[in-house]
């Protein structure tokens, strides 16, 4: 699940969370837990299949000190890049 320094198609990230197959509230809870393990400035990539995450992940980012850099839907999957604040 954790691939430090891996390269996605566009951006470097420090950790990846595979949230595929999970429904609310698990994608957000595990996203928060993963971010808690990062240092400020590091980037988490999240891959989810829950369509609700398209609303919930930005809603989480808005109430935290972290920044949602990117959210993309591709082939039924949702990809997020979140920078730890």
């Amino acid at each position: 699940m954790v691939k430090p320094g891996s390269k996605s198609t566009e951006t470097l990230y420090d950790m990846e969370l595979d949230a595929r197959g999970w429904d609310c509230p698990l994608p957000v809870i595990h996203t928060i837990r993963a971010l808690n393990r990062l240092n400020p400035g590091q980037i988490l990539r999240v891959v989810a299949t829950d369509p609700g995450s398209m609303v919930d992940i930005p809603a989480y980012a808005n109430q935290s000190e972290n920044t949602l850099l990117e959210s993309v839907e591709t082939e039924g999957e949702f990809h997020y890049l979140i920078k730890k604040g």
Partner: peptide, 10 residues
């Protein structure tokens, strides 16, 4: 349990 676990994570 959904609200409690999410709020705690937040």
């Amino acid at each position: 349990f959904i609200l409690a676990s999410t709020a705690a994570a937040l």
